[in-house]
Amino acid sequence: MPGKIKLMIEKILSERSKGNELVEKIIRTKLILKGIDPARYTESSDDDPVIIGKLEKMMQDLPR
């Protein structure tokens, strides 16, 4: 299913920042430092398993 990365990034950004713009900016920076630039992923981006693995690790620590 192409576009999975974009969906995962959106979930991480929204659940971790809870609408706080400053926190969202910090998380975007963290993603880019991991080698995941949110701006480069669209609904049709390939599901790169390496990137998905990094995002899954990040999702483990999302607020419950």
């Binding site: 971790r16 920042s17 998380i27 963290k30 430092l33 690790k57 483990q60 620590d61």
Partner: peptide
């Protein structure tokens, strides 16, 4: 250091 910072960043929003 970059791996430790990456792991911290996953755990918390605190800088």
């Amino acid at each position: 250091e970059e791996k430790v910072m990456d792991a911290i960043g996953d755990k918390t929003n605190v800088i």
